[in-house]
Write a protein that binds this DNA or RNA. Structure first.
Lengths: 186, 186
DNA sequence: TTATAATATTAACGAACGTTAAATAAAGGA
DNA sequence: TCCTTTATTTAACGTTCGTTAATATTATAA
């Protein structure tokens, strides 16, 4: 019917609906209407509503996180985190929606227990990974653990600002806030 | 039927269901079942599902925010914010659920446009109020605006940790992180 | 060209939803 | 006591939901 693969278009519309109306507020009929296909076509490509939701989180969301974490090189630590956050601004609108939906599940505002458990596991790897990134760049302070924890907390809010609240953050204001926490470090 | 006012018990159960399952995932029947009353009793005390949801946000949530903001005295600025966050730990479970639901609406993960607009207005008063609290305690630094913004961002994440993720944060770790951002200030 | 597989649609199923009408029970003042 | 108000229930309404059966169309390969 269209040039774009129907399966992909279904997911694009689905992630928008799940974001705007939540899992229970999203109906297969409304997705089909916006995709401009008949209702059973959703069931042709996805077994049921839940598997459609799960594929977006389990596949697309975690793929996005891995992609995002992989492609950055570390030289200056402030530059590193500034770019890490700043580049969220220029994610595709599909990726932003997937990210937003993932955060929603992460905060257990949507999804089920199984998905939340997966999120918890990932969160733990994030913390240790960031710790290994930051630690060598800190002068041996006695409170380095606190600085790392504070930075991670700041990063979380910046991510929420861009992804969840759809705000644009300039490279400068990101750098300023990260520098405030890392003040005194290399 | 019970010693506690039925209307209050309905709201207690409702806020739990709205939190766990979202607005659309919550059903009047399930609320009635957990309250142990018949279904139409919900409609005896509340006009409809939406007004039940709205009362929790418009009344209980904003009452909670005002209560929380009003009762603290400012002496030392780090003490002030440490207590401000730490006392979230000891909110009643009902207040915590109301707070969580409010954050859900604030992040536009639930609720409707009208409620989000109310949230946006409140957010703006929060920022200027915090600015006035902090500013006199800052030595005249050229980057005081950045520090205030960074602190507010940190506070947001701490609130989310306690209220949304249901984590307990000790007074010490709260103070450490706030001090990290306010490092160098009185 | 024709058989087979992939893609799509129409129509309908039972279940669950929000909501309400009508009737009953309990409470409180006259 | 009786009457009026408040509190509560049973039963049902119309609608929408997720899902599927049955059928049609289109593409593909022999």
């Amino acid at each position: 019917m269209s040039d774009k693969d129907l399966r992909i278009r279904i997911k694009e519309v689905a992630v928008e609906h799940f974001n705007n109306n939540g899992y229970h507020g999203t109906t297969i009929r409304n997705i089909a209407k916006d995709v401009n296909c008949s209702l059973p076509m959703i069931y042709y490509y996805f077994n049921n509503k839940k598997e459609l939701f799960d594929e977006i989180i389990k596949k697309d969301y975690f793929d996005l996180l891995k992609r995002q974490a992989a492609h950055l090189k570390i030289d200056n630590i402030i530059d590193f985190y500034t770019r890490f956050i700043y580049e969220l601004n220029s994610l595709s609108s599909y990726d932003k929606r997937v990210y937003r939906l993932g955060i929603k599940v992460y905060l257990s505002f949507d999804g089920d227990d199984e998905l939340m458990e997966i999120m918890d596991k990932w969160e733990k790897t994030i913390i240790t990974r960031h710790y290994q990134i930051i630690k060598p760049h800190l002068k041996d302070m006695d409170n380095d653990i606190v600085i790392v924890r504070t930075l991670i907390h700041l990063l979380e809010t910046l991510i929420v600002s861009i992804i969840v609240k759809s705000r644009f953050l300039s490279e400068e204001e990101i750098r300023e806030e990260i520098s405030t926490v890392l003040r005194g470090c290399e």
